[in-house]
Design a protein around this nucleic acid. Structure first.
Length: 438
RNA sequence: CGGGGCGUGGCGCAGCCUGGUAGCGCGCUUGUUUUGGGAACAAGAGGCCCCCGGUUCGAGUCCGGGCGCCCCGACCA
């Protein structure tokens, strides 16, 4: 994309409503604009980030055998009456009437709908397990939206649901999902630590929240440093093998990690002092086993091996996709602006033409840009160099390819790594291969 | 939902107390000179002052009502 023609509105001054870094930077860098309290329009750069996150989430969901569906945002009240949640859910549920006075709602989550869809299609235990997910906008009418997309009313969420014949099967589904989550967050370039969460009336130890560590997090967190040293992508886990899954699960849960709500001082004191990590975290994912709560309430059963009706064991698993944009920024920015992890950045690199009109500079920039027009944001505006340096730092693409008359004469490109500030003088070919990888 | 605050060119704000030609900085347009870390000068454009009603000769300013947005707290992917 050429910046001169991009819909990329940037702000020099900070909008008054933005309190935290991610919200300020998302507005300043032209990723989003607010349209109502807690509701945002995503502009091209922001949407590219959102799509990148979705892509990685999909790949990791598919890798554990989850199948993507897409359920609607609007649901019927009757469906929710079947689970008893229509009345139980508070005013965060946005209730709507259509022209026939039928009661509808904008879905805050999809347990009821997926359970119903499942029940209509699946009739035998032999068709289990099933894991279904979708990535869809949700609406929760929060009392007090704040912090931009971190706490919006409308938000994009990946929610997955597993159906198993037995408790043991449900546990295996849960563990596979935990692995998928750890890999997903690592690929997104953030450290998300799984912490035991309150399981409420269901009990057991099968509920974990994933928190990205950031000073502006809403929860206090306590965890063993061992958890941030793990490379989840390198771990060899056989997702078809129960023993392998169990060993993996024990590696994760063997180290202490809890939010302030679930914090256990005694267990904490047993963690060696030099490995104790305390801080704050932003919840970006939650996995939960809840057994037959919905299948029983809604009367959804399949035939068991003895031909008797059997209520499938369910789990649900959420990732806050739009919230992650904010969380990633909270965890990765500096005074000058955004610092995108490679996998989520809107573009791989910005090309900075420091002197538009200088024949050598123009020629090199055009060569660079032509190599991968969709991977680069080419700053071809006729502004001064300082403006371009500042905007490039604000937008935070992983690389900056800086081209000015000084180096252009010799055919050289100055490559700057946004995260470290490291600079290299390279030929056009070397700069391209360095930035595009491979 | 309790408490507090704010709505004035795209953004950040002043003006309101004490009613009388709607301002400043940034941004935007045109021109000239500049040009490796947010240039200088000159000339311009751009406003239902949130909405409705009231008081007044006259309302951005005073009064009443409404709407929107933000902050603190309790609650939350």
């Amino acid at each position: 994309m050429r910046l001169s023609s991009a819909f990329q509105p940037m702000l020099k001054e900070v909008p008054a409503e933005a309190q935290i870094a991610s919200h300020r930077l998302m507005l300043r860098a032209g990723l989003i604009r607010q349209t109502s309290s807690g509701i945002y329009a995503w502009l091209p750069a922001g949407l590219r980030v959102l799509r990148n996150i979705e892509r990685i989430v999909r790949e990791e969901q598919n890798a554990i055998g989850a199948q993507e569906v897409l359920m609607p945002t609007l649901q019927s009240a009757d469906l929710w009456r079947r689970s008893g949640r229509y009345d139980a859910y508070g005013p965060e549920m946005l209730r709507i009437k259509d022209r026939h006075e039928r009661e509808m709602l904008y879905g805050p989550t999809n347990e009821e709908m997926i359970t119903d869809l499942f029940g209509q299609a699946i009739k035998s235990y032999r068709e289990l397990p099933q894991v279904l997910y979708h990535i869809q906008w949700k609406f929760r009418d929060e009392l007090r939206p704040r912090f931009g997309v971190m706490r919006g009313r409308e938000f994009l969420m990946k929610d997955a649901y597993s159906f198993d014949v037995t408790y043991e099967g449900a546990v295996a589904s849960y563990r596979r999902m935990m692995l998928a989550y750890l890999r997903t967050f690592q690929r997104l370039g953030v450290r998300a630590v799984p912490m035991v969460a309150d399981t409420g009336p269901i009990g057991g130890n099968l509920s974990h929240e994933f928190l990205v560590l950031a000073p502006t997090g809403e929860s206090g967190v306590f965890y063993d440093a061992a958890l941030e040293e793990q490379d989840w992508l390198a771990q060899d886990v056989d997702i078809a093998d129960t023993a392998s899954l169990e060993a993996f699960f024990n590696r994760v849960t063997g180290s202490y990690a809890a939010t302030d709500e679930m914090h256990d001082e005694k267990a904490w004191s047993e963690v060696p002092e030099d490995r104790r990590r305390e801080g704050r975290g932003i919840e970006v994912g939650h996995i939960f086993y809840f057994g037959t709560k919905y299948t029983e309430a809604m009367g959804i059963s399949v035939s068991g091996s003895d031909s008797a009706p059997l209520f499938p064991q369910m789990g649900s698993y959420g990732i806050g996709v739009s919230r992650l944009v904010g969380a990633i920024i909270e965890a990765s920015h500096d005074e000058a602006g955004l610092i995108w992890p490679d996998e989520v950045a809107p573009y791989r690199a910005a090309i900075l033409n420091l002197k538009v009109g200088d024949a050598a500079s123009d020629a090199i920039c055009e060569r660079l840009y032509a190599a991968a027009p969709d991977a680069f944001l080419y700053d071809d505006r006729s502004d001064r160099a300082g403006v371009k340096f500042n905007d490039a730092d604000l937008l935070g693409h992983p690389w900056q390819m800086i081209v000015g008359p000084r180096g252009a004469k010799e055919g050289m490109v100055e490559l700057k790594r946004r995260a470290t500030g490291e600079r290299l003088e390279l030929s056009v070919e070397d700069a391209l291969s360095r930035v595009l990888g491979g």
